[in-house]
Design a protein around this nucleic acid. Structure first.
Lengths: 192, 192
DNA sequence: TCGCGAGTACACTGATCTGTATACCTCTCC
DNA sequence: GGAGAGGTATACAGATCAGTGTACTCGCGA
Protein backbone atom coordinates (compact mmCIF):
# COMPACT_ATOMS: atom_id res chain seq x y z
CA UNK A 1 0.00 0.00 0.00
CA UNK A 2 2.86 2.33 0.79
CA UNK A 3 4.23 4.06 -2.25
CA UNK A 4 7.76 4.93 -3.19
CA UNK A 5 9.60 4.38 0.06
CA UNK A 6 10.80 0.85 -0.70
CA UNK A 7 11.83 1.55 -4.26
CA UNK A 8 15.57 1.13 -4.89
CA UNK A 9 17.24 4.36 -5.99
CA UNK A 10 17.43 4.68 -9.75
CA UNK A 11 20.66 4.95 -11.72
CA UNK A 12 20.88 7.94 -14.08
CA UNK A 13 19.97 5.79 -17.05
CA UNK A 14 17.16 4.14 -15.08
CA UNK A 15 15.80 7.59 -14.28
CA UNK A 16 15.74 8.62 -17.92
CA UNK A 17 14.08 5.34 -18.91
CA UNK A 18 11.28 5.74 -16.38
CA UNK A 19 10.72 9.36 -17.37
CA UNK A 20 10.55 8.60 -21.08
CA UNK A 21 8.44 5.47 -20.63
CA UNK A 22 5.98 7.16 -18.31
CA UNK A 23 5.32 9.90 -20.82
CA UNK A 24 5.06 7.53 -23.77
CA UNK A 25 2.77 5.08 -21.95
CA UNK A 26 0.47 7.89 -20.89
CA UNK A 27 0.34 9.63 -24.24
CA UNK A 28 0.06 6.59 -26.52
CA UNK A 29 -0.99 3.68 -24.34
CA UNK A 30 1.07 0.93 -22.77
CA UNK A 31 0.61 -1.87 -25.30
CA UNK A 32 1.11 0.49 -28.22
CA UNK A 33 4.58 1.56 -27.05
CA UNK A 34 7.50 -0.77 -27.73
CA UNK A 35 10.67 -1.07 -25.69
CA UNK A 36 12.77 -0.06 -28.68
CA UNK A 37 11.05 3.32 -28.77
CA UNK A 38 11.49 3.80 -25.03
CA UNK A 39 15.21 3.01 -25.29
CA UNK A 40 15.63 5.42 -28.18
CA UNK A 41 13.74 8.21 -26.42
CA UNK A 42 15.74 7.88 -23.24
CA UNK A 43 19.08 7.75 -25.09
CA UNK A 44 19.84 4.30 -23.77
CA UNK A 45 20.43 0.89 -25.27
CA UNK A 46 17.80 -1.81 -24.96
CA UNK A 47 20.37 -3.87 -23.08
CA UNK A 48 20.52 -1.23 -20.32
CA UNK A 49 16.74 -1.11 -20.13
CA UNK A 50 16.58 -4.85 -19.55
CA UNK A 51 19.54 -4.79 -17.12
CA UNK A 52 17.67 -2.20 -15.03
CA UNK A 53 14.09 -3.49 -15.17
CA UNK A 54 14.19 -7.08 -16.38
CA UNK A 55 11.00 -6.90 -18.42
CA UNK A 56 8.55 -4.48 -19.98
CA UNK A 57 5.94 -5.46 -17.39
CA UNK A 58 8.27 -4.50 -14.54
CA UNK A 59 9.05 -1.21 -16.24
CA UNK A 60 5.33 -0.50 -16.55
CA UNK A 61 4.90 -1.12 -12.82
CA UNK A 62 7.88 1.10 -12.03
CA UNK A 63 6.44 3.94 -14.12
CA UNK A 64 3.04 3.68 -12.45
CA UNK A 65 4.65 3.54 -9.00
CA UNK A 66 6.70 6.64 -9.76
CA UNK A 67 3.64 8.49 -10.99
CA UNK A 68 1.70 7.41 -7.91
CA UNK A 69 4.50 8.65 -5.65
CA UNK A 70 4.51 12.05 -7.33
CA UNK A 71 0.72 12.31 -7.25
CA UNK A 72 0.43 11.39 -3.56
CA UNK A 73 3.01 14.04 -2.81
CA UNK A 74 0.84 16.68 -4.49
CA UNK A 75 -2.28 15.45 -2.71
CA UNK A 76 -0.58 15.46 0.67
CA UNK A 77 0.72 18.97 0.01
CA UNK A 78 -2.78 20.16 -0.86
CA UNK A 79 -4.16 18.60 2.31
CA UNK A 80 -1.44 20.23 4.40
CA UNK A 81 -2.10 23.59 2.77
CA UNK A 82 -5.80 23.63 3.56
CA UNK A 83 -7.04 26.06 6.19
CA UNK A 84 -9.35 23.77 8.12
CA UNK A 85 -10.20 20.12 8.66
CA UNK A 86 -13.36 20.58 6.58
CA UNK A 87 -11.41 22.18 3.76
CA UNK A 88 -8.89 19.35 3.91
CA UNK A 89 -11.54 16.82 2.91
CA UNK A 90 -11.87 18.37 -0.54
CA UNK A 91 -8.17 19.19 -0.89
CA UNK A 92 -7.63 16.27 -3.34
CA UNK A 93 -9.94 18.11 -5.74
CA UNK A 94 -7.63 21.12 -5.57
CA UNK A 95 -4.69 18.87 -6.37
CA UNK A 96 -6.73 17.40 -9.21
CA UNK A 97 -7.21 20.84 -10.73
CA UNK A 98 -3.48 21.45 -11.09
CA UNK A 99 -2.80 17.84 -12.01
CA UNK A 100 -5.23 17.89 -14.93
CA UNK A 101 -3.80 21.17 -16.18
CA UNK A 102 -0.64 19.18 -16.97
CA UNK A 103 -2.10 15.78 -17.83
CA UNK A 104 -4.96 15.91 -20.30
CA UNK A 105 -5.28 12.25 -21.23
CA UNK A 106 -7.32 11.22 -18.22
CA UNK A 107 -6.21 9.03 -15.35
CA UNK A 108 -3.03 7.06 -16.04
CA UNK A 109 -4.10 4.40 -13.53
CA UNK A 110 -7.58 3.88 -14.94
CA UNK A 111 -6.02 3.86 -18.39
CA UNK A 112 -3.54 1.24 -17.23
CA UNK A 113 -6.31 -0.92 -15.79
CA UNK A 114 -8.07 -0.68 -19.15
CA UNK A 115 -5.01 -2.19 -20.81
CA UNK A 116 -3.92 -4.62 -18.09
CA UNK A 117 -6.88 -6.82 -17.18
CA UNK A 118 -4.68 -9.53 -15.68
CA UNK A 119 -4.48 -9.00 -11.91
CA UNK A 120 -1.13 -10.80 -11.91
CA UNK A 121 0.41 -8.02 -13.98
CA UNK A 122 2.67 -6.04 -11.62
CA UNK A 123 1.19 -2.78 -12.86
CA UNK A 124 -2.34 -3.89 -12.05
CA UNK A 125 -1.66 -3.91 -8.33
CA UNK A 126 -0.03 -0.48 -8.40
CA UNK A 127 -3.08 1.00 -10.10
CA UNK A 128 -5.65 -0.54 -7.78
CA UNK A 129 -3.59 0.47 -4.74
CA UNK A 130 -3.63 4.07 -5.93
CA UNK A 131 -7.43 3.99 -6.09
CA UNK A 132 -7.94 2.37 -2.70
CA UNK A 133 -5.49 4.78 -1.11
CA UNK A 134 -7.53 7.76 -2.32
CA UNK A 135 -10.83 6.31 -1.12
CA UNK A 136 -9.32 5.59 2.29
CA UNK A 137 -7.76 9.04 2.44
CA UNK A 138 -11.20 10.60 1.89
CA UNK A 139 -12.58 8.54 4.76
CA UNK A 140 -9.69 9.46 7.01
CA UNK A 141 -10.08 13.16 6.24
CA UNK A 142 -13.87 13.04 6.64
CA UNK A 143 -13.52 11.34 10.01
CA UNK A 144 -10.95 13.89 11.17
CA UNK A 145 -13.28 16.69 10.13
CA UNK A 146 -16.12 15.16 12.14
CA UNK A 147 -18.35 14.57 9.11
CA UNK A 148 -21.42 12.42 9.54
CA UNK A 149 -21.23 9.02 7.78
CA UNK A 150 -17.55 9.35 6.80
CA UNK A 151 -17.42 6.02 4.99
CA UNK A 152 -20.40 6.65 2.70
CA UNK A 153 -19.24 10.22 2.18
CA UNK A 154 -15.77 9.00 1.24
CA UNK A 155 -17.15 6.65 -1.41
CA UNK A 156 -19.20 9.49 -2.89
CA UNK A 157 -16.22 11.82 -3.00
CA UNK A 158 -14.11 9.07 -4.52
CA UNK A 159 -16.64 8.39 -7.29
CA UNK A 160 -16.86 12.10 -8.01
CA UNK A 161 -13.08 12.39 -8.18
CA UNK A 162 -12.71 9.45 -10.53
CA UNK A 163 -15.53 10.61 -12.75
CA UNK A 164 -13.89 14.00 -13.02
CA UNK A 165 -10.45 12.74 -13.95
CA UNK A 166 -11.79 10.08 -16.32
CA UNK A 167 -13.95 12.51 -18.31
CA UNK A 168 -11.58 15.45 -18.17
CA UNK A 169 -10.30 14.83 -21.74
CA UNK A 170 -13.84 15.41 -23.02
CA UNK A 171 -13.63 19.06 -21.93
CA UNK A 172 -17.09 19.17 -20.39
CA UNK A 173 -16.04 21.01 -17.23
CA UNK A 174 -16.21 17.90 -15.12
CA UNK A 175 -13.34 18.79 -12.78
CA UNK A 176 -14.93 22.05 -11.66
CA UNK A 177 -18.37 20.46 -11.42
CA UNK A 178 -17.04 17.63 -9.27
CA UNK A 179 -15.08 19.96 -6.98
CA UNK A 180 -18.11 22.18 -6.43
CA UNK A 181 -20.37 19.25 -5.63
CA UNK A 182 -17.73 17.75 -3.34
CA UNK A 183 -17.58 20.95 -1.29
CA UNK A 184 -21.36 21.00 -0.98
CA UNK A 185 -21.41 17.40 0.22
CA UNK A 186 -18.75 18.03 2.86
CA UNK A 187 -20.46 21.21 4.02
CA UNK A 188 -23.78 19.36 4.36
CA UNK A 189 -22.14 16.53 6.29
CA UNK A 190 -20.42 18.95 8.65
CA UNK A 191 -23.41 21.07 9.67
CA UNK A 192 -25.14 20.54 12.98
CA UNK B 1 -24.16 11.65 -33.07
CA UNK B 2 -26.91 9.30 -34.10
CA UNK B 3 -26.12 5.69 -33.35
CA UNK B 4 -26.85 2.54 -35.25
CA UNK B 5 -29.45 3.73 -37.73
CA UNK B 6 -27.06 4.37 -40.62
CA UNK B 7 -25.07 1.17 -40.20
CA UNK B 8 -25.31 -1.23 -43.17
CA UNK B 9 -26.86 -4.57 -42.20
CA UNK B 10 -24.29 -7.19 -41.32
CA UNK B 11 -23.82 -10.48 -43.14
CA UNK B 12 -23.91 -13.62 -40.93
CA UNK B 13 -20.12 -13.78 -40.89
CA UNK B 14 -19.88 -10.07 -40.19
CA UNK B 15 -22.21 -10.50 -37.23
CA UNK B 16 -20.06 -13.23 -35.73
CA UNK B 17 -16.92 -11.18 -36.25
CA UNK B 18 -18.34 -8.15 -34.45
CA UNK B 19 -19.63 -10.27 -31.58
CA UNK B 20 -16.34 -12.07 -31.06
CA UNK B 21 -14.25 -8.93 -31.48
CA UNK B 22 -16.38 -6.88 -29.11
CA UNK B 23 -15.96 -9.41 -26.35
CA UNK B 24 -12.23 -9.86 -26.93
CA UNK B 25 -11.55 -6.11 -27.12
CA UNK B 26 -13.45 -5.52 -23.90
CA UNK B 27 -11.91 -8.40 -21.95
CA UNK B 28 -8.30 -8.06 -23.10
CA UNK B 29 -7.90 -4.60 -24.57
CA UNK B 30 -7.98 -3.46 -28.18
CA UNK B 31 -4.28 -3.30 -28.99
CA UNK B 32 -3.61 -6.60 -27.24
CA UNK B 33 -6.05 -8.51 -29.49
CA UNK B 34 -4.90 -9.47 -32.97
CA UNK B 35 -7.09 -10.00 -36.02
CA UNK B 36 -5.96 -13.62 -36.31
CA UNK B 37 -7.47 -14.39 -32.93
CA UNK B 38 -10.71 -12.61 -33.83
CA UNK B 39 -10.98 -14.57 -37.06
CA UNK B 40 -10.37 -17.84 -35.24
CA UNK B 41 -12.90 -17.06 -32.51
CA UNK B 42 -15.61 -16.12 -34.96
CA UNK B 43 -14.99 -19.19 -37.15
CA UNK B 44 -14.13 -17.07 -40.16
CA UNK B 45 -11.09 -16.60 -42.35
CA UNK B 46 -9.03 -13.45 -42.07
CA UNK B 47 -9.87 -12.76 -45.70
CA UNK B 48 -13.55 -12.53 -44.83
CA UNK B 49 -12.80 -10.21 -41.93
CA UNK B 50 -10.93 -7.83 -44.22
CA UNK B 51 -13.56 -8.15 -46.96
CA UNK B 52 -16.21 -7.05 -44.45
CA UNK B 53 -14.43 -4.34 -42.49
CA UNK B 54 -11.37 -3.31 -44.49
CA UNK B 55 -9.10 -2.76 -41.50
CA UNK B 56 -8.76 -3.48 -37.81
CA UNK B 57 -9.45 0.18 -37.02
CA UNK B 58 -12.78 0.04 -38.84
CA UNK B 59 -13.69 -3.15 -37.03
CA UNK B 60 -12.91 -1.48 -33.71
CA UNK B 61 -15.24 1.38 -34.62
CA UNK B 62 -17.95 -1.05 -35.71
CA UNK B 63 -17.71 -2.93 -32.40
CA UNK B 64 -17.93 0.27 -30.36
CA UNK B 65 -20.87 1.50 -32.45
CA UNK B 66 -22.69 -1.78 -31.94
CA UNK B 67 -22.09 -1.65 -28.21
CA UNK B 68 -23.25 1.96 -28.11
CA UNK B 69 -26.43 1.03 -29.96
CA UNK B 70 -27.21 -1.75 -27.50
CA UNK B 71 -26.43 0.44 -24.50
CA UNK B 72 -28.61 3.35 -25.68
CA UNK B 73 -31.44 0.90 -26.17
CA UNK B 74 -31.18 -0.17 -22.54
CA UNK B 75 -30.99 3.42 -21.32
CA UNK B 76 -34.00 4.45 -23.38
CA UNK B 77 -35.92 1.47 -22.06
CA UNK B 78 -35.07 2.44 -18.47
CA UNK B 79 -36.19 6.00 -19.12
CA UNK B 80 -39.44 4.81 -20.64
CA UNK B 81 -40.05 2.47 -17.71
CA UNK B 82 -39.71 5.16 -15.06
CA UNK B 83 -42.82 6.27 -13.22
CA UNK B 84 -42.33 10.02 -13.33
CA UNK B 85 -40.34 12.73 -15.04
CA UNK B 86 -38.22 13.12 -11.91
CA UNK B 87 -37.53 9.41 -11.75
CA UNK B 88 -36.62 9.44 -15.42
CA UNK B 89 -33.66 11.73 -14.74
CA UNK B 90 -31.90 9.01 -12.76
CA UNK B 91 -33.08 6.16 -14.97
CA UNK B 92 -29.64 5.82 -16.62
CA UNK B 93 -28.30 4.81 -13.20
CA UNK B 94 -30.83 1.97 -13.12
CA UNK B 95 -29.66 0.87 -16.55
CA UNK B 96 -26.10 1.11 -15.25
CA UNK B 97 -26.89 -1.28 -12.44
CA UNK B 98 -27.95 -4.08 -14.79
CA UNK B 99 -25.27 -3.19 -17.33
CA UNK B 100 -22.46 -3.55 -14.79
CA UNK B 101 -23.83 -6.86 -13.57
CA UNK B 102 -22.89 -8.21 -17.01
CA UNK B 103 -19.82 -6.13 -17.79
CA UNK B 104 -17.28 -5.97 -14.99
CA UNK B 105 -14.31 -4.48 -16.81
CA UNK B 106 -15.43 -0.87 -16.55
CA UNK B 107 -16.57 1.31 -19.42
CA UNK B 108 -15.68 0.00 -22.87
CA UNK B 109 -15.71 3.53 -24.25
CA UNK B 110 -13.43 5.04 -21.61
CA UNK B 111 -11.21 1.98 -22.02
CA UNK B 112 -11.17 2.55 -25.77
CA UNK B 113 -10.24 6.21 -25.32
CA UNK B 114 -7.38 5.08 -23.08
CA UNK B 115 -6.01 3.03 -25.95
CA UNK B 116 -6.91 5.26 -28.87
CA UNK B 117 -5.50 8.73 -28.20
CA UNK B 118 -5.56 9.71 -31.85
CA UNK B 119 -8.78 11.63 -32.56
CA UNK B 120 -8.54 10.52 -36.19
CA UNK B 121 -9.06 6.91 -35.19
CA UNK B 122 -12.62 5.99 -36.23
CA UNK B 123 -13.28 4.45 -32.81
CA UNK B 124 -12.29 7.64 -31.00
CA UNK B 125 -15.27 9.51 -32.38
CA UNK B 126 -17.70 6.74 -31.51
CA UNK B 127 -16.51 6.77 -27.90
CA UNK B 128 -16.68 10.54 -27.43
CA UNK B 129 -20.12 10.64 -29.05
CA UNK B 130 -21.37 8.08 -26.55
CA UNK B 131 -20.21 10.32 -23.68
CA UNK B 132 -21.67 13.52 -25.06
CA UNK B 133 -24.96 11.79 -25.80
CA UNK B 134 -25.31 10.76 -22.15
CA UNK B 135 -24.48 14.20 -20.81
CA UNK B 136 -27.01 15.77 -23.17
CA UNK B 137 -29.61 13.15 -22.27
CA UNK B 138 -29.25 14.08 -18.60
CA UNK B 139 -29.81 17.73 -19.46
CA UNK B 140 -32.83 16.91 -21.60
CA UNK B 141 -34.36 14.76 -18.86
CA UNK B 142 -33.60 17.34 -16.15
CA UNK B 143 -35.21 20.06 -18.22
CA UNK B 144 -38.29 17.92 -18.85
CA UNK B 145 -38.59 17.25 -15.13
CA UNK B 146 -38.43 20.96 -14.39
CA UNK B 147 -35.21 20.76 -12.38
CA UNK B 148 -33.44 23.98 -11.46
CA UNK B 149 -30.14 24.54 -13.29
CA UNK B 150 -30.57 21.57 -15.63
CA UNK B 151 -27.23 22.08 -17.38
CA UNK B 152 -25.10 22.13 -14.21
CA UNK B 153 -27.16 19.28 -12.78
CA UNK B 154 -26.62 17.25 -15.95
CA UNK B 155 -22.84 17.66 -15.75
CA UNK B 156 -22.90 16.54 -12.12
CA UNK B 157 -24.98 13.47 -12.92
CA UNK B 158 -22.73 12.69 -15.86
CA UNK B 159 -19.57 12.86 -13.73
CA UNK B 160 -21.20 10.63 -11.13
CA UNK B 161 -22.23 8.13 -13.77
CA UNK B 162 -18.78 7.97 -15.32
CA UNK B 163 -17.06 7.71 -11.96
CA UNK B 164 -19.33 4.82 -11.05
CA UNK B 165 -18.76 2.83 -14.21
CA UNK B 166 -15.03 3.55 -14.30
CA UNK B 167 -14.42 2.39 -10.73
CA UNK B 168 -16.89 -0.47 -10.73
CA UNK B 169 -14.16 -3.10 -11.29
CA UNK B 170 -12.62 -2.04 -7.97
CA UNK B 171 -15.69 -3.39 -6.13
CA UNK B 172 -16.02 -0.42 -3.79
CA UNK B 173 -19.78 -0.06 -4.17
CA UNK B 174 -19.47 2.92 -6.44
CA UNK B 175 -22.53 2.17 -8.60
CA UNK B 176 -24.92 2.13 -5.65
CA UNK B 177 -23.24 5.16 -4.08
CA UNK B 178 -23.52 7.13 -7.30
CA UNK B 179 -27.16 6.16 -7.88
CA UNK B 180 -28.13 7.20 -4.35
CA UNK B 181 -26.38 10.53 -4.62
CA UNK B 182 -27.89 11.12 -8.06
CA UNK B 183 -31.40 10.66 -6.70
CA UNK B 184 -30.69 13.09 -3.87
CA UNK B 185 -29.41 15.68 -6.30
CA UNK B 186 -32.48 15.40 -8.53
CA UNK B 187 -34.81 15.53 -5.56
CA UNK B 188 -33.08 18.64 -4.24
CA UNK B 189 -33.28 20.31 -7.67
CA UNK B 190 -36.97 19.45 -8.02
CA UNK B 191 -38.23 20.80 -4.69
CA UNK B 192 -39.96 24.12 -4.45
C1' DT C 1 46.21 -2.09 -9.47
C1' DC C 2 42.38 -4.63 -9.69
C1' DG C 3 37.66 -5.72 -9.72
C1' DC C 4 33.11 -4.39 -10.39
C1' DG C 5 29.04 -1.92 -11.58
C1' DA C 6 27.04 0.92 -15.18
C1' DG C 7 26.48 1.48 -19.66
C1' DT C 8 27.39 1.01 -24.96
C1' DA C 9 27.26 -1.27 -29.49
C1' DC C 10 25.17 -4.44 -32.30
C1' DA C 11 23.66 -8.57 -34.07
C1' DC C 12 20.14 -11.85 -33.54
C1' DT C 13 16.03 -15.09 -32.35
C1' DG C 14 11.43 -16.47 -32.74
C1' DA C 15 7.05 -14.97 -32.39
C1' DT C 16 3.39 -12.05 -33.72
C1' DC C 17 1.49 -8.10 -36.10
C1' DT C 18 -1.65 -6.03 -39.97
C1' DG C 19 -2.72 -6.72 -44.40
C1' DT C 20 -2.58 -8.99 -49.28
C1' DA C 21 -2.59 -12.53 -53.27
C1' DT C 22 -4.53 -16.32 -55.53
C1' DA C 23 -7.61 -19.86 -56.39
C1' DC C 24 -11.71 -22.05 -55.41
C1' DC C 25 -16.58 -23.11 -53.76
C1' DT C 26 -21.72 -22.39 -53.36
C1' DC C 27 -25.92 -20.14 -53.41
C1' DT C 28 -29.22 -16.91 -55.29
C1' DC C 29 -31.31 -14.17 -58.62
C1' DC C 30 -32.01 -12.55 -63.27
C1' DG D 1 -27.10 -20.72 -67.53
C1' DG D 2 -24.39 -17.09 -66.25
C1' DA D 3 -22.98 -13.41 -63.14
C1' DG D 4 -22.01 -11.87 -58.82
C1' DA D 5 -21.88 -11.90 -53.78
C1' DG D 6 -20.36 -14.23 -49.66
C1' DG D 7 -17.23 -17.15 -47.95
C1' DT D 8 -13.19 -20.75 -47.57
C1' DA D 9 -8.33 -22.21 -47.73
C1' DT D 10 -3.70 -21.21 -47.67
C1' DA D 11 0.42 -19.03 -48.38
C1' DC D 12 2.83 -14.94 -48.05
C1' DA D 13 5.05 -10.05 -47.31
C1' DG D 14 7.11 -6.82 -44.44
C1' DA D 15 7.23 -4.79 -40.19
C1' DT D 16 7.47 -4.89 -35.35
C1' DC D 17 7.35 -7.26 -30.98
C1' DA D 18 9.87 -8.65 -26.39
C1' DG D 19 13.94 -10.33 -25.05
C1' DT D 20 19.02 -12.38 -25.36
C1' DG D 21 24.21 -13.01 -26.34
C1' DT D 22 28.62 -11.26 -26.59
C1' DA D 23 32.21 -8.24 -26.36
C1' DC D 24 33.53 -3.82 -25.31
C1' DT D 25 34.49 0.88 -22.49
C1' DC D 26 34.68 3.87 -18.50
C1' DG D 27 35.02 5.38 -13.75
C1' DC D 28 35.32 4.50 -8.96
C1' DG D 29 36.60 2.54 -4.66
C1' DA D 30 39.26 -0.96 -1.86
Amino acid sequence: MDSGSDAPPLTPAGRRIVDAAEELFYERGITAVGVDLIAERSGVTKRTLYNRFGSKDSLVAACLAERDRRWREEVRAAVAASGSAEEAVTAPFEALRSWTSTYTRGCAFLNALAELPDPRHPGHRVATDQKRWLRDLFEELATAAGCRGPSALATRLFVLHEGAVATEPLALGSVTAAADLARELVRAASRG
